[in-house]
């Protein structure tokens, strides 16, 4: 699995967005930060809670100049139908057929041939600023991802459980 400071592998993959099939590449994303979250499969019963969670929180991420991109090994048409099933998803779902992107990020489960529940926050230089992986049967926390995004955007040293409005530490302190 990649770690903070690693360059984010580029991608140019089919995707479903806004009810249509399209293509998306990392270079084409102009936002300050990118939340790239991998999930195992479309049409499952844990993943939708995450996909919908990010969908509901999308305005808050947008306010933080952060794009959200979901990724699974399903094809783009499956993503389109899945997004429709969920009532619409306000960010692109990438089709990582074969799991090559998941492998590049080190979050591919070879046994199940799906991506792990992994979340990466990429900074402006498209290096990994934050990463976390959850067990396959435990959904991740969207609010924690948003908290981390907000903390990263301060550019300051944020203590544990920092929340917006909380005190910062000196930015030049590394540890």
């Amino acid at each position: 699995m990649l770690k903070p400071g690693d360059s984010a592998p580029l991608f140019d993959l089919p995707c479903a967005f806004d009810g249509k099939l399209s293509h998306l590449n990392l270079d084409g994303i102009r936002s300050e930060l990118v939340v790239l979250f991998f999930y195992p499969r479309d049409f499952s019963f844990i993943c939708p809670t995450e996909v919908i969670g990010f969908h509901k929180a999308q305005p808050a991420f947008k306010a933080e100049h952060t794009s959200i991109v979901g990724v699974s090994v399903d094809d783009a048409e499956s993503h389109r139908r899945w997004a429709h099933e969920l009532g619409g998803v306000s960010y692109p779902l990438l089709a990582d057929a074969g799991g090559r992107l998941a492998q590049a990020y080190g979050v591919f489960d070879e046994k199940e041939s799906v991506a792990l529940r992994a979340t990466f926050v990429l900074d402006r230089a498209r290096t990994v600023a934050y990463c976390v992986a959850s067990p396959i049967n435990v959904g991740r926390s969207v609010s924690e991802t948003l908290r981390v995004v907000r903390a990263i955007r301060t550019g300051q040293l944020c203590p544990a459980d920092w929340e917006p409005g909380g005190d910062f530490g000196p930015a030049d302190h590394k540890f």
Partner: peptide, 24 residues
């Protein structure tokens, strides 16, 4: 853990030949 039951049942239906979408 209803989610786990749902996922396992979905996987069982997929093993028996149903598409993931139909099983879902």
């Amino acid at each position: 853990q209803p989610y786990v039951v749902q996922e396992e049942l979905l996987a069982a239906l997929a093993r028996e030949g149903l598409s993931r979408e139909a099983g879902y």
